[in-house]
């Protein structure tokens, strides 16, 4: 179904005289996992913040679910915030609240659910991301980075969003945990019919999750396409990114898996 969840048209972002994005058009389709890739300082995270309405475009428009993020109906925009969830890079859990209260907060903000139902839903969300019930009363400062990410994911999923934003989901996790986190995101994407927009520069994450990849480079959107299409692009940054030692290794694994699949 070629329905666009997010549509960006002619986006310019400037901080003072510094141009971050120059005339960018991008759309995210329902059900896909779109990865934003680019060198450091290429405006990937700023792009994500634009999609969330945390930054204001200098020029151009960002629409999510057909609603403009900066013009028009305030009520429509408020409802929008119940339809998406965001996983911040460092988790951004409220340090003054327990794990349970962190996940319960968005549900309590609706002010229509009773406390019993919230309790059951929070426990369900924690279970879904693989956090045991005994951790629910702990404070975020007592937890490891991997657990904080999982709990932040549970909080992002608290209001049953259709759209999930991930900022560097596997940064700061050891390879084993980042592998299991990728699997978790994959499962949730399949089970909950999520659309995912992700910023990452971890190649393994990129290769194993992305439906499509968007490459930001020199203030512009260089290419949007499937992994195969992007890898074939001759742009020097992309060649460097994917055809470096690490990139080739990650791609070889994918190729090997594909070969095995085609044989069986």
């Amino acid at each position: 179904m070629a329905e666009n969840i997010i549509e960006i048209k002619g986006l310019w972002t400037k901080f003072g005289d510094h141009v971050v994005h120059r005339d960018i058009d991008l759309s995210v389709r329902r059900g896909e996992i779109m990865s934003l890739v680019g060198g450091s300082g290429s405006g990937k995270t700023t792009m994500l913040r634009q999609m969330l309405g945390l930054e204001r475009p200098t020029k151009g428009e960002v629409r999510a679910f057909g609603v403009s993020l900066h013009a028009g109906d305030g009520e429509a925009r408020r409802r929008l915030r119940n339809r998406w969830g965001m996983l911040f890079q460092e988790g951004a859990l409220f340090s003054a609240l327990t794990v349970f209260d962190n996940v319960a907060l968005p549900m309590r903000e609706l002010r229509t659910l009773d406390e019993d139902l919230i309790h059951d839903l929070v426990m369900l969300k924690l279970d879904m991301v693989g956090i045991e019930a005994r951790h629910a009363s702990k404070m975020p400062s007592d937890l490891s980075g991997g657990m904080i990410k999982r709990i932040a994911l549970a909080r992002a999923l608290a209001l049953e969003p259709e759209l999930l934003f991930l900022d560097e989901p596997t940064a700061g996790l050891d390879p084993d945990r980042s592998e299991s986190f990728v699997t978790l995101i994959k499962d949730l994407h399949r089970d909950l019919n999520l659309t995912v927009v992700m910023v990452t520069h971890d190649l393994d994450t990129l290769v194993s999750l992305s439906t499509r990849v968007a490459v930001l480079c020199d203030q512009r959107l260089e290419i949007v396409g499937t992994l195969d299409e992007v890898v074939g692009n001759p742009h020097p940054f992309i060649r460097n990114f994917f055809m470096g030692e690490r990139g080739r290794r990650a791609l070889e694994v994918v190729q090997a898996v594909k070969d095995v699949m085609s044989m069986t």
Partner: peptide
Amino acid sequence: WNLIALEHRVA
């Protein structure tokens, strides 16, 4: 039967 639709009718 999702959260958006149920929001005001749960009780």
